[in-house]
């Protein structure tokens, strides 16, 4: 199957996106910010639609809108963690704007718009071009590297923000920076697995890793590893079974991993608390 170029592109982009999702996701779950990630993923969808309406490059639109909202959420929240009511209301509103843009798109140009929306929502990793997949891989690798660089201070400020503050860690700035990282990952993986499904790549491998080990280093590595396994397996499954969409296969595998970890973890040691 690697004889096909589109498969190689998908694997290149997919691997790095899974690495980024797994490592960022581990922190997202630890910090209890999945809802923010979820909201950002919907924002990414609106960004894609907006890019189509204003005829800018889709990737540019995605990144601009998602990063802006991520930064805005960080600024509004108290400990750079937005309140769940505010997230809920803001993202409903942004989706409403997305709906408006879809309507504008449908009435202005005509033709092929439903496809744009569906692709943005559910991704089309097998449709990535060679250039797009290299760009995706580079950005995802940069995000992963950023997580590794801020790993220790971010971990300390997540687990004990007062101690971190006392030791001179810029807790607020880190929290805000982290939300921006989440936004970058979200915008990045929207193209691959789609705005509605990327939450699974953020939550399932990370949730499984949290249930399997309390050690942060092993947990982060495990989370990234499991995400890559789900990505590779899902891509292969979807290649083998044409009627199975790639995103569904990837998410299905990730969820299966989480379910196994949940069952095994419950029998073994108690789930971590920190």
């Amino acid at each position: 199957m690697f004889a096909h170029e589109f498969v190689r592109n998908a694997y290149l982009a997919g691997t790095f996106i899974a690495l980024a999702c797994g490592s960022v996701g581990w922190f997202v779950v630890l910090r209890g910010q999945l809802f923010a990630g979820d909201a950002l993923s919907h924002v990414a969808f609106v960004g894609a639609i907006a890019a189509a309406v204003f005829a800018v490059n889709e990737q540019v639109g995605l990144f601009a809108v998602t990063l802006a909202v991520g930064a805005g959420m960080a600024a509004l929240g108290r400990r750079a963690q937005a309140d769940d009511v505010v997230i809920g209301i803001v993202f409903a509103w942004i989706l409403g704007i997305g709906l408006l843009l879809i309507t504008v798109l449908a009435t202005s140009s005509g033709g092929g718009n439903g496809i744009t929306a569906v692709n943005a929502l559910f991704g089309s990793i097998y449709a990535l071009s060679a250039g797009a997949s290299s760009v995706a891989a580079v950005i995802a690798a940069a995000v992963t590297a950023a997580v590794v660089v801020v790993f220790r201070p971010l971990l300390l400020s997540t687990l004990d923000s007062e101690l971190a503050g006392a030791r001179g860690v810029p807790v607020r700035a880190l929290g805000a920076g982290f939300l921006v990282l989440v936004a970058a990952v979200t915008a990045e993986s929207t193209e691959a697995v789609g705005a509605l499904l990327l939450l699974g790549l953020l939550s399932a491998p990370a949730g499984a890793a949290h249930r399997m080990t309390a050690n942060p280093y092993r947990g982060l590595a495990l989370s990234a590893g499991l995400a890559v396994v789900a990505m590779w397996g899902g891509l292969a499954l979807s290649y083998g079974i044409p009627s199975l969409p790639a995103s569904s296969a990837i998410i299905g595998l990730a969820a299966a991993i989480y379910a196994i970890a949940a069952v095994v973890g419950r029998r073994g040691r108690a789930p971590r608390r920190a």
């Binding site: 999945l34 509605l196 949290h210």
Partner: peptide
Amino acid sequence: RTETATIGTVQT
């Protein structure tokens, strides 16, 4: 924390 992971996984 693991609870939000469960919710997120159920959703996706």
